[in-house]
C-alpha cells in the first residue's frame, strides 16, 4: 500500500457508504479489501457492516459480499470457499467478516468448527467491543469497566474481555494476528502474509466506534494508536499456535492506560479501583504475551 499509488479507482470501497463519521470498521475494511482484492469474495455476518454495505441495488464494495445470518459466518465461509473451489475459482481469496458479536459470542461455535477443520479462508473480526449496530449492548468483547446500554449507570461491564486470539491460537491454525487502523502497514503485512498461506487464518482488528465508545469521530486513529501503545491491544501474530511474535517496536515504552480510557465516555466514571483492576489485567495479559513471545524465541 504505497499511499501515492492509491486512488479512488484502485480502492475496493466506494464513497457514500453508510458508516458513521470516523468509523474504524469502515477504514479497516477499506484496508482489507485494498490489500486482499480485487479477486476477493466476502461472507459478511450480521454486524455494522450489514448496514454500511448499503441497500441493494447499491453496494459499498467492488467485490461480492455474501450476507449471512449472525451465527453462521464461520460455516458460510467454509461453504463459500468450497463452493468456489468446486466451480474452479481456486485463486479467489475468501474473507469472512464479522463483528465482535459474530466472533466472540454467537459466531464462536461456527468459528471454532471452521478453525478446527482448517478451512481455507481468512476470518476477520472487526472488534468494536460491543453490539454497536443495535446500539451499544455488552458483548463478551466489551472490556471490564466499560458502560454499555445493557450495563447502564451505575452498572458497568463485569468480567474481562475474552481473549479471542488465544482461543484461536489454541486451534493451532496457521496464522492469527491482531491489527489496528493506526498501523496500516502492519495490517497490510499481516493480510499479505495471511493471503499467501493456506488454511484458516484469523485477524482481529480493533475498531474504535465513536458513537459507541463516546469518542470524538476524529479520534479513531489516535485511539487505535493508544490502544496499542498502552498494551490494551498489543499488535502481534501467532503461527500454528506456537510462534508468538510482537509486530510493533513499542514493547518497552507503554503509555498509561488512563490516556487511552480518558478520551472515551464509556469509561467516564471509572473509579480508581476499577482503573487499577483494568491496568493490572492489561499488565497481566501483557506479561503473559511477552512470556509466550520469549518462549517462542527459545523454541526457535
Amino acid at each position: 500500500m504505497k499511499i501515492e499509488e492509491m486512488n479512488r479507482e484502485n480502492e475496493m470501497i466506494y464513497s457514500g457508504h453508510s458508516a458513521c463519521p470516523g468509523c474504524g470498521a469502515a477504514l479497516a475494511v477499506r484496508f482489507l479489501t485494498k490489500t486482499l482484492g480485487p479477486n476477493l469474495a466476502i461472507a459478511l455476518t450480521a454486524s455494522c457492516w450489514s448496514i454500511i454495505a448499503g441497500v441493494p441495488p447499491l453496494t459499498a464494495l467492488k467485490c461480492p459480499i455474501l450476507h449471512c445470518p449472525f451465527p453462521s459466518a464461520g460455516s458460510v465461509g467454509s461453504g463459500l470457499r468450497r463452493g468456489l473451489n468446486a466451480k474452479g475459482m481456486l485463486d479467489t481469496t475468501v474473507v469472512v467478516l464479522a463483528g465482535d458479536g459474530g466472533t466472540f459470542d454467537i459466531g464462536l461455535q461456527a468459528l471454532s468448527g471452521a478453525a478446527q477443520r482448517n478451512e481455507d479462508y481468512i476470518f476477520v473480526c472487526y472488534d468494536n467491543e460491543a453490539y454497536m449496530n443495535t446500539g451499544m449492548q455488552t458483548s463478551s468483547a466489551t472490556p471490564f469497566g466499560a458502560r454499555t446500554n445493557t450495563a447502564p449507570y451505575p452498572l458497568f461491564k463485569e468480567g474481562q474481555k475474552k481473549d479471542i486470539v488465544q482461543i484461536m491460537a489454541a486451534h493451532s491454525i496457521p496464522y492469527a494476528a491482531t491489527a489496528t487502523v493506526a498501523f496500516p502497514e502492519d495490517m497490510e503485512n499481516k493480510f499479505k502474509f495471511a493471503k499467501e498461506l493456506k488454511g484458516f487464518r484469523f485477524i482481529h482488528i480493533l475498531s474504535p466506534c465513536p458513537p459507541g465508545w463516546g469518542t470524538e469521530s476524529s479520534d479513531t486513529i489516535e485511539l487505535s494508536r493508544l490502544a496499542v501503545s498502552s498494551g490494551a491491544f498489543p499488535l502481534f501474530e501467532v503461527k500454528y499456535g506456537m510462534e508468538w511474535r510482537m509486530t510493533t517496536p513499542l514493547e518497552d515504552k507503554r503509555t498509561p492506560l488512563g490516556d487511552y480510557l480518558g478520551i472515551q465516555r464509556r469509561f467516564k466514571d471509572i473509579d480508581s479501583e476499577r482503573l487499577k483492576i483494568l491496568q493490572e489485567e492489561v499488565n497481566y495479559e501483557w506479561e503473559l504475551l511477552q512470556d509466550k513471545v520469549r518462549r517462542s524465541e527459545i523454541l526457535k
Binding site: 461453504g79 470457499r81 468450497r82 463452493g83 468446486a86 466451480k87 461455535q109 468448527g113 478446527q116
Partner: peptide, 18 residues
C-alpha cells in the same frame, strides 16, 4: 460441527453456484 453449520455451509457453497 452442527446442523446449523451444515446448512450454513450449504448456503455458502450454493451461493457460489455449487
Amino acid at each position: 460441527e452442527s446442523e446449523y453449520s451444515a446448512l450454513a455451509c450449504c448456503n455458502g457453497a450454493a451461493a457460489a453456484g455449487a
